[in-house]
Design a protein around this nucleic acid. Sequence first.
DNA 1: AGCGCCTGATTGTTCAACAATCAGCCCCGC
DNA 2: GCGGGGCTGATTGTTGAACAATCAGGCGCT
Lengths: 229, 229
Amino acid sequence: MTDAVTHASAGLAPETAARLRDRIITGRLRPGERLSEARLAAEMSVSRNTLREVFRLLVHEGLLTHLPHRGVSVAVPSMAGVLDIYRLRRLIEIPALAQAWPRHAAVARMGAEVAQAQAAQAAGDWRGVGSANMRFHAGIVALADSPRLTAFFAQAMAELRLAFGLLDDPEQLHAPFLQDNAAIIDLLQAGDPQAAAARLADYLDRSERVVMTAFARREHAAGAGGRGA
Amino acid sequence: MTDAVTHASAGLAPETAARLRDRIITGRLRPGERLSEARLAAEMSVSRNTLREVFRLLVHEGLLTHLPHRGVSVAVPSMAGVLDIYRLRRLIEIPALAQAWPRHAAVARMGAEVAQAQAAQAAGDWRGVGSANMRFHAGIVALADSPRLTAFFAQAMAELRLAFGLLDDPEQLHAPFLQDNAAIIDLLQAGDPQAAAARLADYLDRSERVVMTAFARREHAAGAGGRGA
DNA sequence: AGCGCCTGATTGTTCAACAATCAGCCCCGC
DNA sequence: GCGGGGCTGATTGTTGAACAATCAGGCGCT
């Protein structure tokens, strides 16, 4: 499992995009940081042209922002953006879950994700908990059986994760919500999607409040020099 | 109003993308047609590199498909794709309309689009009717006040329009639905978003049926040599 | 007739160059 | 002393050409 060149059967640009995406999500590249084409191209051992292609990809995913003639920088999550994404999540996840077929194939995957999240929690791997949680909610969207919606949602969640990366305390962020996921699965398998959807709505409200609170606190203390992680 | 170089303040690649998008939507480039990089680059007077950037954009929008080492072609709309998009429309448009604030700024825009569509209908400009209709439904989505959702929906509608382009009879496609739009506006302004949403749901069912019927007929007659338009 | 190889064409990637634009700075005039 | 104009250096935007990798189709060989 070397970090370099896992296996680039999909072409160099997508692989480089994945590497850069990882750097952004793990926080090695900080929001607002400017990305010089020449420097980064040399550092990642790809040509400037290929890197530009990568940039287009990640800009479209919302992880980078592009200003004409001023280059690209890592997107800085805004409170407006976080609010927008939670509005999205309500609009998409709740109906998807409410009208779900309880024996849908995605339900099994969601159960697996809950187990994986619990395992990661036991191992103290908070990043893993977050990943599993996101895949769980991607599973909810998959219940709607729309490839386009699934792709779009994954993109929005990646952007949300960017905001998570800004916050300090990943444990407090994800831990209280693991039981919600388990409860949602139970209600769904019990044949009561409406109750599951209600529980999901409640989860979204609480999750949003936690994130927004932490976000506002951080934004308030922005000039105080307290840098996260 | 020259077709060439409206004003390229946004850079050459986005402008070229717009030109190519227009060629696709208007049907000058037929679905399935292969797009040679070198030939098209010369024809549009841009470099191969820039054209590649354009390709990435339109591939992500769903208007082009890319096969490794075999180049890009105009996407061929599938029945599965059309079904997916209508599933999307139900999932997005109906809740957006149902929980709409009747005095939302987008309502005025929607009214204007209805008027514009009627004007285009009177002028026999069926492409204009289609465009206005799409902007009308984009307005419905705008009621949800989510920039991300709005962008995503616009993309899906562009893809749907690709499927419309395959069908022969644009009049039959859009004409019967103009009154639906007007009724939706009326119900919304009368303060009854629920009724408006119900009407929208009905519209979506009928619209989908018309499109799918025409689509199936065309697909059935594919080998018969009857080419459309 | 069936199979593999070779050839031509197209795509994928890189490199180097030039034009256009931006940010910061100095110099000049008031 | 202070503000404005223009210059300078750096970065991005775009182009063209080159080379490697891959695919499609035809050819000859067995």
